[in-house]
Computed example of a mutant assay.
Amino acid sequence: MPKSKRNKVVTLSKTKKKGKERKELIVNSIRQAVDNYSSIYVFSFENMRNLKFKEFREQLKNTSRFFLGSNKVMQVSLGRSVADEIRPGIHKVSKLLRGDTGLYLTNLPKEEVQRLFEEYEEYDFARTGSTAIEKVELKEGPLDQFSHEMEPFLRKQGMPVRLNKGVVELVSDFVVCEEGNQLSPEAARILRLLGIKMATFRLQLVCRWSPDDFELYKEGLDLSDVESS
């Protein structure tokens, strides 16, 4: 017998999706920030770590504002050409918002900004798919850093281990990763267990805009990269 449509359960709660309103809010926030801060920077990042970035942002919250998200939305906020830019020359900033980049707006002197970004560097454990920066090889013999309870887990990661009188032991040499190769999920887990950090979270300045000036910082870029089309 077919189910009665009268008995159909209807969910009254609604989930608000990110859409046009969300994009408009970001656009308006960026445009307001342009009015409030004297300089705008594009920065690129490697090995983003959200918690570390949040801490860095908190340190500068009294003088600065960061924006991360859709490059296209940030470009629209500033204007992508001379015809629609919100300030003279600011479309050059939009053209450099590509890949892993963000906006940094601040009232700090440019020398202070350069120092902060150049000195910022945080080390962390590499994730699956990251490139190994060195070869890590474990030699045959006891692994005293691991308790006997870890033996089954290590074996699941592909390590040739056994218990010898309650001590975890490698029965043969084992290469965790090779320099230049991508890390497998197993290799990333083993490196974490070994306490070996191969990822460096960095922020690099790409360019700076102010009402009176425009500068490029990143090597390999020149003014032809930001010429209006």
Results as ranks from 00 to 15, higher is better:
87 R>W: 11
50 N>V: 14
139 K>M: 08
213 D>E: 15
229 S>Q: 00
138 L>T: 08
210 S>T: 15
43 F>E: 00
67 F>S: 05
7 N>F: 15
124 D>Y: 06
27 V>G: 06
35 D>C: 10
22 R>K: 09
5 K>G: 12
83 A>Q: 11
90 I>E: 08
222 D>K: 03
147 S>K: 08
118 E>N: 12
47 N>C: 11
89 G>M: 09
137 E>F: 01
170 L>I: 12
56 F>Q: 12
27 V>A: 01
85 E>H: 09
153 F>E: 02
6 R>G: 01
217 Y>W: 03
115 R>V: 03
222 D>R: 03
92 K>E: 13
34 V>G: 14
219 E>L: 09
136 V>N: 07
71 N>E: 05
54 K>P: 00
209 W>P: 00
154 L>N: 06
99 G>I: 14
92 K>I: 07
96 L>Q: 02
186 E>G: 10
54 K>R: 14
87 R>P: 13
27 V>K: 11
151 E>A: 15
79 G>M: 14
114 Q>F: 10
150 M>W: 15
82 V>P: 06
40 I>V: 15
47 N>I: 05
187 A>W: 01
6 R>T: 09
221 L>T: 04
107 N>Q: 12
198 M>R: 13
12 L>G: 10
153 F>W: 03
171 V>E: 08
93 V>C: 07
77 S>E: 03
160 P>E: 00
149 E>Q: 08
128 T>N: 11
222 D>L: 06
103 L>Y: 06
161 V>T: 15
45 F>Q: 02
90 I>M: 05
125 F>N: 00
122 E>H: 07
176 V>Y: 02
177 C>F: 11
136 V>A: 04
149 E>H: 11
109 P>W: 05
189 R>D: 10
96 L>N: 00
95 K>I: 07
82 V>Y: 10
18 K>G: 12
40 I>C: 10
21 E>G: 03
217 Y>Q: 01
209 W>V: 07
179 E>Q: 13
166 G>S: 13
93 V>N: 04
215 E>V: 06
149 E>R: 04
172 S>D: 13
188 A>F: 04
225 D>Y: 12
111 E>D: 14
130 S>P: 08
80 R>S: 15
33 A>W: 01
181 N>Q: 12
104 Y>A: 01
91 H>K: 09
110 K>W: 06
169 E>M: 13
219 E>V: 11
80 R>M: 15
79 G>E: 11
49 R>K: 08
212 D>C: 06
8 K>S: 15
128 T>S: 07
32 Q>W: 00
156 K>F: 09
193 L>G: 07
160 P>I: 03
105 L>H: 05
224 S>W: 12
164 N>G: 01
100 D>S: 13
41 Y>E: 04
194 L>N: 03
122 E>R: 07
83 A>I: 11
17 K>A: 14
168 V>F: 02
24 E>A: 11
120 Y>M: 13
81 S>Y: 10
24 E>S: 05
49 R>N: 12
14 K>H: 10
67 F>D: 09
162 R>P: 06
78 L>I: 04
35 D>F: 04
11 T>W: 02
155 R>D: 09
1 M>Q: 05
110 K>H: 11
28 N>M: 09
68 L>K: 01
152 P>M: 02
27 V>H: 03
5 K>S: 10
45 F>A: 09
142 P>F: 08
182 Q>D: 04
139 K>D: 04
117 F>T: 00
216 L>D: 03
103 L>G: 10
140 E>M: 09
61 K>C: 12
120 Y>I: 12
64 S>C: 14
43 F>S: 01
199 A>Y: 00
201 F>M: 06
223 L>C: 03
